[in-house]
C-alpha cells in the first residue's frame, strides 16, 4: 500500500490487538517495561526496514492504570524514538482522555515531548461512559475546548504540524466539520508565523 499510494506519513498505534490466534478490534494497552521497549524498537525497526522509510508511533488512549509500568509514557516514547529512529504522532485527545482517566497533567505531558520528534497530530472529540467518570475516545463529538486549548499551546511551542481531525461517529453536517477544520487551520497559521 505504501508503494502504491506513497503517503506523506505512515503511522501505527502503540498498542496490541492480536494474541494467541485471536484478533481484538481495539487498541489494547502495553506495560511500559524494558523488555517491551526492546521488542517494540525491534518491531518498529523491522517495519521501517521493510517499508524503507521512517514511521510515526501514536500515543494510545488510557483507561486503566497498570501497575506493571516501569517507564513514564513520555520518556518511553522518547526512548522508543531514539532507539528505532521513528517519530511520534501525538493524539492530543488521547492525552486529554488519558489524563482524566488515570490522573496525570495533560499540559505537562505535552511539554515532555520534544518538538523534533512530532511528525503529525490528531484531534478528536470524546464522550463520557455510562458511569460518568471515564472519558471515552469515541470520535463522535466535536473537539472539546480543553483539547483545542492544549493543541494551541502545543502548536505554539513546536510550530505547525500536519493535523487530522478524527470524526467517525455521529457525523455532523459538512459545514460543521469545515468549521473545525478552519479552527485547526487558524491555529496552524499561528504556528507557521511563529516559525517564520
Amino acid at each position: 500500500m505504501v508503494d502504491r499510494f506513497e503517503p506523506a506519513l505512515v503511522s501505527e498505534h502503540l498498542a496490541w490487538s492480536r494474541f494467541e490466534g485471536r484478533s481484538f478490534p481495539d487498541l489494547l494497552p502495553l506495560p511500559r517495561t524494558n523488555e517491551v521497549l526492546a521488542r517494540l524498537s525491534a518491531n518498529i525497526g523491522q517495519v521501517q526496514d521493510a517499508l524503507g522509510r521512517e514511521i510515526l508511533i501514536e500515543n494510545p488512549t488510557h483507561y486503566l492504570p497498570l501497575s506493571q509500568h516501569r517507564w513514564s509514557e513520555t520518556s518511553f516514547l522518547r526512548e522508543l524514538a531514539r532507539r528505532s529512529g521513528c517519530k511520534l504522532l501525538i493524539d492530543v485527545n488521547n492525552v486529554a482522555v488519558g489524563a482524566n482517566n488515570i490522573g496525570f497533567d495533560a499540559a505537562s505531558w505535552l511539554l515532555d515531548i520534544p518538538a523534533k520528534l512530532v511528525g503529525e497530530i490528531h484531534l478528536a472529540g470524546h464522550s463520557h461512559d455510562a458511569g460518568g467518570t471515564l472519558l471515552i475516545d469515541s470520535h463522535d463529538e466535536p473537539v472539546s475546548e480543553l483539547v483545542w486549548s492544549l493543541y494551541e499551546d502545543f502548536i505554539g511551542r513546536i510550530g505547525a504540524r500536519p493535523t487530522l481531525i478524527e470524526r467517525d461517529g455521529n457525523v455532523p453536517s459538512f459545514d460543521e466539520l469545515l468549521r473545525e477544520r478552519d479552527r485547526a487551520q487558524a491555529v496552524l497559521d499561528g504556528g507557521l508565523r511563529l516559525a517564520a
Binding site: W16, F19, L28, L30, P31, T33, E35, V36, R39, Q68
Partner: peptide, 8 residues
Amino acid sequence: LPDLIAFQ
C-alpha cells in the same frame, strides 16, 4: 517475553 505474554 514471558512477562509480556503473561500480561496479555
